[in-house]
Design a protein around this nucleic acid. Structure first.
Lengths: 223, 223
DNA sequence: CTGTATCCATGGCGATACTG
DNA sequence: CAGTATCGCCATGGATACAG
């Protein structure tokens, strides 16, 4: 842990939080991930060794509680950790307002699909099974096709064809769907201009914006 | 600048802000410092080379505007930078609530005197010159005595005797005065228990808490 | 006053492989 | 599933001196 030699609360907070990846791990924990490998999915570019190290640091700092039960390990936020939501929200609001442009390397279909999955409003979907196929023409084939299977009980994301009949196919550049998700671009505009194409029944095209929604960042007013 | 390969606004914000010292420099700018050496006083353990580098990074990120006028350079926050107040405040509130214990190395008389100086409510002080002497018995002599000269026009902090008649002397361990300043300890308690001694007229002892005040961190409710 | 220049050691962190 | 182990680079940043 770095030290600043200052009594200022901002400095003391940053001693715990300023290391690379740390607040992204906290973000994942705030989103509800508790397992090591579940956390890994949220920070795929972080090596497991480093994730392990950060979790220990956060535990020492009283932010994370590590528990072993039935041979399984879980990580949860302490009260101190849960209160970091204020910091994370402030960072997110600032980031979406002032870091407008995404580089090509910021785009990640896997992260996007998991983010969307996390906020699927099950209640808004039809009963029975609905399968949405996603196609990102600008992405290499291996990462360019995804399937999202929504049933009454849950959501599955696959990167290869699960075999079920596809209800509709969503076709858009990865950047476009990412910008919609972040709220940089609206569903209506994207559909109207053809930046997104939906092949399937009309009611699906109509319902899509409500079914898939947007990240909470979309609620932040832009400068 | 680090990269995370994520479109998440928190990650994009941290790419700009997670490097060591960065948010402390922003904090100084939010407090109103604009000159290079003025900024240095707020982050004395940071090397000038590094400060220079950080200021450039922040300029590239659109957070800081650098201006040269009349051979003098000044740094001010852009609108984007000013909006980081939300982040800094969230960090400060969290820090003062959850990082309760200060190590010996976190205490710094120079920083403390300058912090106090920054918030002196001139209007509350008597007309004419008032000189407060501070004595930190637990600190090595060179850093253990300070003088604060308050006149109608401003405040001066000195680490050697300016020669004026001393109105009153405040005597406390550096840790004690720091804790009072942060709001971990109240003036009343500290005076009542003798953790702080004020040698001087009664009205000074009475007025001190209002004259010196506390940092804004003191307003944050504790867990 | 406002920085640059230079040097150097440390260790952070990425990559990869492997284990109970 | 939940991590360790190992390796090696290179960038970070601390220290100091110096300059326009």
């Amino acid at each position: 842990m770095s030290t600043y030699g200052q009594f200022c609360p901002v400095a003391k907070a940053m001693e715990v939080l300023d290391e690379r990846w740390t607040l992204l791990v906290v973000r994942e924990l705030l989103y509800g991930s508790t397992r090591f490998n579940e956390l890994r999915r949220g920070v795929p570019r972080m090596s497991p060794a480093l994730l392990s190290k950060r979790l220990r640091s956060l535990e020492r700092a009283g932010v994370v509680e590590r528990r072993e039960a039935g041979g399984r390990t879980s990580y949860t936020l302490t009260e101190s950790g849960r209160e970091l939501s204020g910091v994370v929200e402030a960072l997110g609001s600032w980031g979406v307002r002032w870091i407008g442009t995404l580089g090509r390397a910021d785009l990640d279909p896997h992260l996007l699909m998991w983010d969307i999955r996390r906020k699927i409003p099950l209640a808004a979907w039809p009963r029975g099974r609905t399968v949405l196929a996603f196609c990102f023409p600008d992405v290499e084939p291996r990462q360019g096709r995804w399937w999202m299977c929504v049933t009454g009980t849950g959501v599955d994301v696959c990167d290869d064809d699960p075999g079920f009949e596809v209800t509709a196919t969503v076709r858009a550049d990865l950047r476009v769907l990412t910008e919609i998700w972040r709220g940089d671009l609206s569903w209506e505009r994207a559909l109207a201009t053809g930046l997104v194409r939906v092949d399937g029944p009309t009611e699906v095209r109509r319902g899509l914006p409500r079914w898939l929604g947007q990240s909470e960042a979309a609620l932040v007013p832009r400068p």
